[in-house]
Design a protein around this nucleic acid. Sequence first.
DNA 1: GAGCATCCGGCTGATGACGT
DNA 2: ACGTCATCAGCCGGATGCTC
Length: 349
Amino acid sequence: MGRPPSNGGPAFRFNLPEVTEMEAILLQHNTAMPGRHILEALADKFSESVERKGKVVVQFKQIWNWFQNRRYALRARGNKAPGKLNVSSMPRAVDPANQMRNVLQPLAVGPKPTHMSGNLPSMTPVPSVPGVMRSGSDNSYLEFEAKSGRDGAWYDVQAFLAHRNLEIGDPEVQVRFAGFEVEEDEWINVKKHVRQRSLPCEASECVAVLAGDLVLCFQEGKDQALYFDAIVLDAQRRRHDVRGCRCRFLVRYSHDQSEEIVPLRKICRRPETDYRLQQLHSAANDFANSNQLQKPAPDAAAKTPLSQPSASVPNVAPELKDPSLSASATPATSVQPSSNAATVPAGSA
DNA sequence: GAGCATCCGGCTGATGACGT
DNA sequence: ACGTCATCAGCCGGATGCTC
């Protein structure tokens, strides 16, 4: 949905007299949409003005757009009611904008989780084991997600309630989904449908999402909005700005093979891609160090925190700044969610 | 303090989805 | 067909931090 100037020139902008006149007309109409003939007359008039004649033709559509936007803006300003909660009524649906997927806080960790150390398949049948576990190797926490057999979507695990070993097939765990009640508990195949929790992407982490990756993607349907597995088919890198990452990712959902272009905020990357960020950080360090050797005077790249790789060169897509990153990065198509996720301690990626 | 680069927030034009 | 709304993306100006 790009909006570059269609003629390649500078972005169109109404000048002050034009805006003043349109505002006056809007007031005359009590903020209602003026008739088409009025808008056309305005377009003709503006096109014939001294400033525009022979240079720019003001289109009817541009006038119409202005009135639409101005009316919408006026209304939005008037309706601004503070503190209005946006509560979704959709079951298990989570707003991707705030990047929260019923994440348990570390405080929720139980008294003896460390023995698990991310080795789920060997877990003992201790009832109500928290779905968040402290890694044995460091102070980070492991969080798990599980794939529901009811809708095929992935949910954060609040607690592992029990486990059983079937005579045939893989072991299963009884899972309490975060934010759901007992009636939603499910028995889930540990190897196939339980894994380390996918990670919401911060703006600077879009570089870790590459074509071919397995990701968890927020799919919004008519009557449900859930997280499903998806493969990244293509990544369209765009400039970052104050709002963060504006890259777009073409994904194909694994459950229905549908394709969609989504922003970063709808994507959760697999923890296995952490190494890419580490590579980026070390590459940025090398870059900063080499720059310091060549040019003692500090520059922006050296000053910028590594956690914001895009901020140092805001006008360039992050992956383009460091060719070594894309060259060395390996697509995660071979990720085996269950085994990997359940056995790899957090931070060891 | 001047000059510069960058960050940050807001404004604005454009477009698509959806409802009537 | 038209109106409403949400969102995208470019641009601009003020704030901030750094160097000289």
